[in-house]
Design a protein around this nucleic acid. Structure first.
Lengths: 97, 97
DNA sequence: CTATATTTGCCAAATAATGTCAAGACAAAA
DNA sequence: TTTTGTCTTGACATTATTTGGCAAATATAG
């Protein structure tokens, strides 16, 4: 998962222990560990907090977080790319509802 | 939702009552109604059964079904398109895990 | 070795999803 | 207007999935 890798990279860069991040998110270090390993998904508010902690662009981190969720949907699909295109093509059409 | 519209269209074309479709899917007509209205999501196996009932390409129907799920993820996101591109670009990278 | 950091498995609580039933809306036919 | 059949909706129960913590196991330093 891109998100997991990203936050690990950010944390490593700043040499912060998981404990510290977990505290900021008000969760157990074990839980944070799982998020960083991609076993658990962070909540949207947590993405926001993380972007502040790591002083990185919130939008960018959020996009990665969303990308992971999308990937989950198509990861085992042979025609994943085509599905993504289908959404892209119909995104306006979808909006009409 | 594209899927909901699609199956309604297919059903209308063949002039089959919801009752009949529901029976084939072994669910209540109320449940099928919700699926057709986009209030409930069909299960993957049900997509298969539907494609047989309506004699349409299973792959095509499945793609629409998947597209809806993806749309659900990004529907309220300002940068939806960018997220889709991000996945598209990284789909190979993702595969490495 | 000791201390700290990270990871894992397992369980309980919270949340989300799925389906049914019962009641209501609607239209066509009698 | 009453009847019939279809479709729709909401409340509710059931089930599945997600989430977080605890405790134990495993690294990683110092």
């Amino acid at each position: 998962m891109l998100f997991a890798e990203k936050i690990k990279q950010l944390r490593d860069f700043r040499q912060m222990p998981q404990r510290q991040i977990a505290a900021a998110l008000e969760i157990d270090t074990a839980t944070y560990c799982k998020i960083e390993k991609g076993d658990r998904r962070a909540k949207r508010e947590q993405v926001f907090i993380l972007s502040e902690l790591f002083e990185c662009k919130h939008d960018e981190l959020l996009k990665i977080w969303l990308a992971d969720q999308i990937y989950d949907v198509v990861k085992n699909e042979k025609e994943a790319s085509e599905v993504l295109n289908l959404v892209q093509e119909n995104i306006v059409e979808y909006g009409k509802r």
